[in-house]
Design a protein around this nucleic acid. Structure first.
Length: 597
RNA sequence: GGUCCAGUAGCUCAGUUGGAUAGAGCAACAGUCUUCUAAACUGUGGGUCCCAGGUUCGAAUCCUGGCUGGAUCACCA
């Protein structure tokens, strides 16, 4: 399709050159023809008409005449207002199918030997609570993006930074020490991340109680929040941790271990993984070193209380703390270190952070700071900022237990898929294990598609009382279309009908077929656009359109029961390739496709 | 208050270098299974593209101003 557009553009330029005697350096705007008009590609002639000094309608007709004469693939044309609709000859689509017939990886760009390296960071959990729906969105976008970037010819490194140190984990640790009575995930028969999360909530409850008491005793709330004994204890624990206190370290390792075991289960259920995991407990040291070096060079400064700051007011930003007065590191410190470590590890061409938009400011500062510190590759740090997932009553708050838990959500989706599947009863003949596998794919497909079809920038309001759809513009709709296609191909094999290796060019595809093949032809461009815009939603919407076009075709025409050989052959190849494209496209979203459903 | 993001049908969303009469799904209603899978297909109704100006042959899209919602401006991460 891209080639054809180029051909047309070239021809238009040549025709203009011949007509006016000068080169036309403006744009030639070509778009897919809207459904209600006859044609496949449309040249917008308004600007061209100006060059030709003729009214748009007349210029369009003249141009159409020229193009039909010069281009073998353009069968005829019509002009409506200033739009020149070109009808592509049916043989072009047959040839197109022949061309991609044996491309197993059609639509994907192989990574060349000197392909750019793209590091993608996503997930980045805190180790003090289980993953919730917000994390799910992060993981799905990050994983999908890594597939898309890889499909676009990049070498991709999936990374995760585990925020395993800091005051938050100390809060859980302290609460466990005080009220845990030595409980473990085994004894509680609870996933480790949930158990640790419970203690985080416990800390917050007790802390709030203390603050309330102190306020009742006459202390201003601001002061009470800073001076509550529990908080002071947690801060003391962080200092001891950073000083390497063996008892604190032991507790920290144990509780983090519980959390990791829990995360692994969730990651596995979601189908996401990483090539390299960084731990903040390592990278903060590098960050501290960077800050102290910058201090020596006078790029940052120390205040009287001992804290270290960067002054970014020249850049239109504020002052930013880099080390606390007690010398401990903050979030920014470790991110400086992580960035440097990754640079040393990969010398990336791009480093994409998949992090929520609440941290826009943080990444703005990070980039400017890295630049100020003398790292020219700071420009390669890209923040893919995605919107929040909110509940109807507002933001999710782990501290208050108001969250949609990731594990529950996944289990619920699979359960719904099972109920619907059993009701429809199409999986008879499969054993229980095979059925479960199908339900798992469908449940997760529904969840992933639901999240990924939405523009990452936008906030999502998720109402747990309303279930995620399985009909219409959904993952299961596309999966179902794929299962239908596979079913047809299985039946073809049963009947010893082979999908032809090559098609004769006599067949003229009908309207629905042309529409579908046109979509298949668009796929490489969709992949490229999605990579350029870091936007999985483009792939999702493409897959939907393609599935819809196939279903419309399928409804109106027979494939195997078609008696005319040319038509049957064309449809078989088209069906095969549609299935492949759907499989590939959904794969870019991290969605698996069942062979039957 | 500064900065960033969003605002399109009752609801959830597409609409990407400015192009034709703004499109899907859900929900509602009415149809289509003796046929390659009805998780599908077809039809009906549903719009102040937040508002007001501006640029343009042409604006949901670009510019200016305003309105609404969210985020952020922490010695939390």
């Amino acid at each position: 399709m891209k080639e054809l557009e180029k051909e047309i553009t070239q021809a238009v330029r040549q025709v203009l050159q011949e007509a006016t005697g000068t080169d036309y350096d403006g744009k030639v705007l070509i778009q897919e023809t809207r459904r209600e008009f006859e044609g496949d590609l449309t040249v917008v002639v308004f600007s061209l008409a100006k060059v030709l000094r003729r009214p748009p309608e007349e210029a369009g007709a003249w141009l159409g005449e020229q193009l039909v004469r010069r281009l073998p693939h353009i069968a005829r044309y019509n002009v409506i207002k200033g739009f020149l609709n070109l009808v592509v000859d049916g043989s072009y689509w047959v040839e197109f199918l022949n061309k991609i017939r044996h491309e197993r990886r059609y639509g994907l760009q192989e990574a060349a030997a000197d392909a750019p390296t793209v590091v993608i960071e996503y997930s980045s959990p805190n180790t003090n609570k289980p993953l919730h729906l917000g994390h799910v969105r992060n993981n799905l976008i990050g994983y999908s993006l890594s597939r898309i970037m890889a499909a676009d010819g990049n070498r991709v490194v999936k990374t995760n930074i585990v925020n395993d140190r800091g005051i938050h984990i100390c809060k859980s640790m302290l609460a466990w020490q005080k009220w845990g009575n030595g409980i473990t995930p085994e004894k509680a028969s609870k996933k480790g991340d949930f158990l640790v999360g419970d203690f985080y909530v416990k800390f917050e409850q007790e802390y709030r109680k203390q603050v309330e008491q102190m306020v009742a005793g006459g202390m201003p709330e601001e002061e009470a929040k800073k001076k509550a004994p529990l908080l002071l204890e947690a801060q003391e624990m962080l200092r001891r941790w950073e000083a390497g206190d063996p008892e604190v370290i032991r507790l920290w390792k144990m509780m983090n271990g519980w959390v990791y075991e829990g995360f692994d289960v969730t990651y596995k259920a979601l189908g996401v993984d990483f090539d390299k995991i960084y731990y903040e407990s390592d990278t903060y040291k590098v960050g501290k070193k960077i800050v102290l070096e910058a201090l020596e060079k006078g790029i940052v400064y120390r205040r009287e209380d001992g804290s270290v700051w960067a002054d970014l007011r020249d850049e239109g930003l504020d002052e930013k703390v880099l080390l606390r007065s007690d010398g401990t590191a903050v979030y920014m410190t470790q991110d400086l270190g992580t960035a440097l470590l990754r640079w040393e590890d990969y010398h990336f061409d791009k480093h994409i952070y998949v992090v929520g938009n609440e941290q826009n400011y943080h990444f703005q500062v990070l980039r400017i700071l890295m630049k100020k510190l003398g790292y020219p590759w700071a420009d390669r740090l890209i923040h893919l900022s995605y919107g929040m997932v909110e509940l109807p009553e507002g933001k999710m708050k782990s501290r208050e237990g108001k969250v949609v838990d990731a594990d529950d959500l996944i289990a619920g989706m699979i359960e719904t898929a099972r109920e619907m599947g059993e009701e429809l009863g199409k999986l008879e003949g499969l054993d229980e294990k095979e059925k479960e596998e199908v339900y798992r794919k469908i449940g997760l497909g529904a969840l992933k598609y639901f999240i990924l079809k939405i523009d990452p920038k936008k906030n999502i309001v998720f109402d747990p009382r309303e279930s995620i759809d399985f009909n219409g513009n959904t993952g299961p709709f596309i999966q179902y279309t794929y299962a239908r296609i596979r079913s047809v191909l299985r039946k073809a094999a049963d009947r010893n009908v082979a999908v032809p290796e090559q098609l004769g060019t006599n067949y003229l595809p009908n309207e629905k077929e042309t529409l579908l093949v046109r979509l298949l032809a668009r796929f490489p461009q969709v992949r490229a656009d999605a990579a350029a815009g870091y936007d999985p939603a483009l792939v999702a919407n493409f897959a939907y359109e393609t599935a819809k076009a196939f279903n419309q075709f399928y409804h109106d025409y027979s494939i195997l029961n078609e008696t005319e050989a040319e038509a049957r052959n064309f449809r078989l190849v088209m069906t095969l390739k549609t299935g492949e494209v759907l499989h590939t496209a959904m794969g870019l979203l991290g969605i698996e496709m069942p062979e039957r459903m």
